[in-house]
């Protein structure tokens, strides 16, 4: 079956907001959490439907803004592999 329309995927209630992080923001993030390499971040596959929908490439760091039932909103990061 053909791939779904990216709009449909991104508009789904279960799918949080994914953004591609700019290079300088990636550095800031690594500095903030004292991480040596971005490969230590949680991962997301390059074949992931959302990664395809937002056209992220391998090595990009995604900022994921989740709706959280405890904090209202929570930010998470994943690196595309």
């Amino acid at each position: 079956m053909a791939d779904l329309d990216p709009e449909v995927i991104l508009s789904h209630e279960y799918v949080p907001k994914h953004e591609i992080l700019k290079d300088k923001d990636v550095e800031k993030l690594l500095e903030q959490y004292k991480i040596e390499s971005k490969m230590q971040l949680p991962k997301i596959l390059s074949s992931d439907p959302v990664v395809k929908a937002i056209k992220a490439k391998k090595g990009d760091v995604l900022k994921i803004t989740r709706k959280s039932m405890t904090a209202g909103e929570a930010v998470y990061y994943r690196v595309v592999i």
Binding site: L4, I9, H12, Y14, V15, P16, H18, I44, L45, D48, P49, V50, V51, I64, R66, R78
Partner: peptide, 16 residues
């Protein structure tokens, strides 16, 4: 859900 909507959606689904 993982296949159609991605890991983050799957994480939400596990939780819910």
């Amino acid at each position: 859900i993982e296949n159609v909507l991605g890991v983050e959606a799957a994480r939400n689904a596990i939780l819910i």
